[in-house]
Design a protein around this nucleic acid. Structure first.
Length: 347
DNA sequence: ATCCAGTAAC
DNA sequence: GTTACTGGAT
């Protein structure tokens, strides 16, 4: 048996029973693939069920409002995935009459669908002969073939795509692609790979050279930016003053609280006299409580966040500030930090 | 602290 | 071509 046959054989006997593996409906496969980008199955599964039930067809998805989508997406991270899904659902509605495309060439034009996802949907839904290259495939190929080219270099990406194309079983790309990825996730794992049960270990470079821990090679990433967010909470008991974030920063279009960003951890007296604070909350800003500065880590940013509850109503409001009824808070899409803070504050 | 089922924006 | 996006597990 060749590499592909071995892995397909392993897959048919050992695959996990996942809901999107029972369908060739491109819409359902798209839903699962976007949710699973950069996300583990266990974490994505409840979101998949929620979306599939709320929007049984792409037509239903296309009719949704962005806030609804972001709300359902809340807690999953990489929120642009949710916003891009809505754009894509509407494109499918307009361009393809609500029938989700199954060909790579059509899929790659849609928002949020890159090379990996286009190949995945095309092969799973219509068996088109496109090889997927995701983190699992990088790892399996790097180890099996002994490729030391970094997977996040331009040369590396080209090389791995080439090798993946070579190995692809073009007669049954759906089975082949799923087999390689599932094998990567379950056996050829990042840490502690289960080489003992691997059907191709005798031909595997990394197994033969005891090199699984050093493959794949990945270039080290960049430094993180430090940011300091001072959040202001004002409530009249019934409403909370919320801010809708703009398009250009983290948590785009989601809600948080009125905030002043400073260059460092600002002393409280500095904060009170900060021009923005004076502008919005007046000269005599009355602070009720002030929280510790807590660190919140994102990929390229470390956020130092502090919450300040204020006693007096602001004297002027930014255009994207809204008084939200406490009972309507649960309809707003919130980032993890904000959700946790408000949850604690209100309960 | 580091790693992970990618894509879009710059 | 390079960099920015999340949250959770380890």
């Amino acid at each position: 048996m060749n590499f592909s046959d071995e892995l397909v054989n392993w897959y048919t006997q050992n695959k996990r029973d996942l809901p999107w593996r029972h369908t060739t409906d491109a819409y359902i496969i798209w839903l699962s693939e976007i949710i699973l980008q950069q996300t583990r199955v266990e974490q994505g599964l409840p979101y998949f069920y929620r979306f599939a039930e709320t929007y049984p067809a792409v037509t239903d998805f296309a009719a949704a409002e962005e806030n609804e989508i972001l709300k359902l997406w809340q807690g999953l991270g990489y929120y642009s995935r949710g916003r891009n899904m809505l754009k894509t659902a509407r494109m499918v509605q307009d361009l393809y009459g609500g029938k989700f495309p199954t060909r790579y060439a059509d899929l790659i034009k849609l928002k949020g669908i890159g090379e990996y996802t286009a190949a995945a949907i095309a092969s799973f839904s219509s068996n088109e002969a496109k090889a997927v290259v995701d983190g699992n495939v990088y790892r399996v190929l790097a180890r099996y073939l002994g490729i030391f080219e970094p997977i996040n270099s331009t040369a590396g990406k080209k090389l791995f795509q080439l090798k993946a194309n070579d190995f692809l079983n073009k007669k049954n790309s759906a089975l082949h692609n799923q087999a390689v990825m599932e094998f990567g996730a379950m056996v050829c794992k990042p840490k502690n790979p289960a080489c003992g049960i691997c059907p191709v270990r005798l031909d595997c470079y990394a197994f033969k050279h005891n090199a699984t821990t050093s493959l794949p090679v990945k270039l080290k990433t960049v430094k993180v930016r430090q940011r300091y967010f001072n959040y202001f909470l004002y409530t009249d008991g019934e409403h909370i003053l919320m801010n809708k974030r703009d398009e250009s920063d983290i948590w785009a279009n989601m809600y948080d609280l009125p905030m002043i960003e400073t260059d460092g951890i600002a002393p409280v007296n500095k904060l009170i006299t900060h021009p923005e604070a004076v502008n919005y909350f007046g000269e005599a800003l009355e602070i009720s409580t002030i929280s510790e500065v807590k660190k919140h880590i994102l990929t390229h940013q470390q956020l130092y966040i502090r919450f300040i509850t204020i006693a007096k109503q602001p004297v002027s409001l930014k255009p994207n500030w809204f008084f939200i009824k406490v009972e309507n808070l649960q309809t707003l899409p919130l980032s993890k930090v904000i959700f946790i803070f408000l949850d604690n504050f209100l309960n």
